Amino acid sequence: MRRPPHRRPAAAALVLAAVLALSACSSSDDAGGGRAGGPSKAAGPSRSAAVPDRQAEAEPPGPTPSISRGPVVPDAELKPVTGSFTQDQKAYLSGRVPKDTDPAAVLQTGQESCQRLERTAKRDKDAAVGAIIAGDIRDAEAAITHLCTAQKPLLATAKTGFPDGTTKTPRAGTYRALTTDPACAWRALDADGKVLASGPSPGDDGPVKAGIPARTAEFVSSSCYAWLPA
């Protein structure tokens, strides 16, 4: 009798496909722990451990820039389909709504930024301030100024710091990095490029701190996320 064709490889392929599909679903569920509907965005290694995961709290991409670079809806035409905007909402939307874009959708982006700030600040104010400094929350300054004024203390604190990277002529003083990343490192340079100070020193424990001398022309850091006065 002729034996039936060997079908184990096909069955194995089906099992493998099912496993991969389940893994993808699981990964998607894990990434969606924050606001629903936002696509994933990988978290950088320089983030503070207290800052919400970018993947879970990611801002949605779309046609809503901080300030539209193209034609915008005139202020007189900033009207929702139903109801009306408050004066503060109109102030937030002014110059921010691209042509052929629903103003209510742009407003929602600002309101969601406020919600992120409020949630983060309840857990860790440093994390919320760091997110403002690093630019992780879209239009944070405008949203706080017009839509969630109770968060103005966070904005005031954020303005005393600066983000990771290169900062020209920083104010002299001692600063602390808003990160737990062991790779965080920094150096302060004078106008000729000479290193005035650098860190962290071997054996340093706790949060990384940087002493910026008065003659510093450029402060450079990496994997430090953001800096605030210590």
Results as ranks from 00 to 15, higher is better:
residue 203 G to Q: 09
residue 125 K to S: 11
residue 228 L to P: 13
residue 72 V to S: 05
residue 57 E to A: 14
residue 14 L to Y: 03
residue 83 G to I: 15
residue 109 T to G: 01
residue 10 A to F: 06
residue 115 Q to W: 09
residue 122 K to R: 06
residue 200 P to E: 07
residue 21 A to R: 02
residue 73 V to C: 04
residue 65 P to K: 06
residue 30 D to V: 03
residue 189 L to F: 06
residue 76 A to T: 15
residue 78 L to A: 12
residue 155 L to K: 09
residue 132 I to V: 12
residue 168 K to C: 05
residue 23 S to I: 10
residue 79 K to L: 13
residue 179 T to F: 07
residue 33 G to F: 14
residue 161 G to L: 04
residue 225 Y to T: 01
residue 64 T to H: 15
residue 158 A to P: 13
residue 86 T to N: 05
residue 133 I to Y: 07
residue 48 S to V: 01
residue 76 A to C: 13
residue 227 W to F: 05
residue 17 A to S: 10
residue 125 K to T: 12
residue 98 P to M: 08
residue 101 T to Y: 10
residue 39 P to W: 04
residue 107 L to D: 00
residue 170 P to T: 01
residue 30 D to Q: 10
residue 102 D to M: 04
residue 170 P to K: 06
residue 88 D to I: 11
residue 68 S to N: 12
residue 164 D to V: 07
residue 137 I to Q: 02
residue 146 H to G: 03
residue 110 G to V: 00
residue 11 A to G: 00
residue 217 A to Q: 10
residue 62 G to Y: 10
residue 109 T to C: 02
residue 207 P to G: 00
residue 226 A to E: 13
residue 151 Q to I: 03
residue 100 D to A: 10
residue 75 D to N: 10
residue 202 P to G: 06
residue 119 R to A: 12
residue 179 T to G: 03
residue 143 A to L: 01
residue 124 D to L: 00
residue 140 A to K: 03
residue 84 S to T: 15
residue 45 P to N: 12
residue 59 E to W: 13
residue 228 L to H: 02
residue 225 Y to K: 07
residue 58 A to F: 07
residue 196 L to P: 04
residue 188 A to F: 04
residue 39 P to A: 03
residue 25 C to A: 15
residue 150 A to P: 07
residue 99 K to V: 08
residue 217 A to N: 13
residue 167 T to I: 05
residue 42 A to K: 09
residue 82 T to K: 14
residue 76 A to V: 14
residue 157 T to Q: 14
residue 25 C to K: 13
residue 23 S to A: 15
residue 138 R to V: 05
residue 93 L to A: 05
residue 156 A to V: 15
residue 5 P to F: 03
residue 108 Q to I: 03
residue 225 Y to R: 13
residue 38 G to H: 11
residue 129 V to P: 06
residue 128 A to R: 00
residue 106 V to A: 14
residue 12 A to H: 04
residue 213 P to L: 02
residue 167 T to G: 01
residue 155 L to N: 02
residue 213 P to R: 02
residue 156 A to T: 15
residue 208 V to R: 05
residue 194 K to N: 11
residue 48 S to M: 09
residue 110 G to N: 00
residue 207 P to A: 13
residue 220 V to E: 06
residue 76 A to Y: 09
residue 72 V to M: 00
residue 171 R to H: 09
residue 222 S to N: 12
residue 65 P to L: 01
residue 137 I to L: 00
residue 78 L to N: 12
residue 113 S to M: 08
residue 75 D to F: 07
residue 63 P to W: 11
residue 150 A to W: 06
residue 69 R to M: 10
residue 145 T to G: 05
residue 105 A to M: 09
residue 11 A to N: 00
residue 8 R to F: 03
residue 25 C to I: 14
residue 43 A to W: 01
residue 136 D to N: 05
residue 112 E to G: 00
residue 187 R to F: 02
residue 97 V to N: 02
residue 119 R to I: 07
residue 204 D to W: 03
residue 197 A to W: 03
residue 76 A to L: 14
residue 58 A to R: 09
